[in-house]
Design a protein around this nucleic acid. Structure first.
Lengths: 134, 134
DNA sequence: CAGTATCCGACAGGATACTG
DNA sequence: CAGTATCCTGTCGGATACTG
């Protein structure tokens, strides 16, 4: 199953690698959120803007362009009045969505564990340094 | 399978969500690379520094601290001369590694498709704008 | 509605020097 | 070796205003 990554990691691991590329793309602030949302189905610009909470118009445009250029998102323009543009996942995008969803699920399942670990870590580091209070 | 994310997306999708949190953590430049590398087994600071190509000493420290505080990485100090510190994945880290590896594999499998899409996109956008040459 | 163009602040992260 | 402390730059991304 993991033979692909495994062998790659075993050899040189880094330098020029597809994982770095992938992260440089969808590792940004919004890509994953947009892909997840589009996983529900085709959606228009405005709708996405409202759905993906906190994203600015500019960043939605930028993100969609990037995803489109990577072949993950399909953009279809309808010459209506007022103009309308629909975005949807390409088959490639769907194939990625699977893994992203898995990651999202992991995040939800282990949310508590992470918070617990953070609390433990804070407690541990709080007493370690010779407390220099302000 | 996806019912977790799905129902969440269906409701409000965004706002405060575990996926945002996860991305804010491991969505940075190095976390995923380090986790992938540690997936091979315990490794010491220097070794990691050499293995994860391109990372600076500072960023390795910062990244490891973050991963440790999230409970994904375990840090063990050996009081030797010279000092030695070993890093390894916690069970939680391993559970995440599974999905990250899947993503890494996806990246490798679809590397060509993405590049193809990018070429097509460049070609398409190259003629659209009223070429303003430098 | 669906963008594009600017401006700008915040912060991620690289380089370097120093410590136990 | 395994860090910490500083400094400094690039760029990510938010706010705002304008266009077809």
């Amino acid at each position: 199953m993991n033979d692909g990554v495994d062998s790659w990691i075993a050899n040189e691991f880094s330098g020029v690698c597809p994982v770095r590329d992938l992260l440089d793309r969808i590792g940004d602030k919004w890509s994953v959120m947009v892909v997840l949302r589009l996983g529900r189905g085709t959606e228009r610009f405005r709708a996405l803007l409202r759905a993906v909470d906190g994203i600015s118009q500019r960043m939605l445009t930028v993100t969609l362009r990037a995803l489109e250029s990577d072949g993950l998102v399909h953009r279809e323009v309808f010459d209506t009045r007022p103009p309308s543009v629909a975005y949807s996942l390409t088959p490639l995008g769907v194939s990625l969505l699977v893994h992203i969803s898995a990651l999202a699920n992991w995040a939800m399942e282990h949310e508590a564990e992470v918070k617990e670990a953070q609390a433990a870590f804070s407690a541990k580091t709080a007493k370690a340094p010779s407390e220099h209070r302000n």
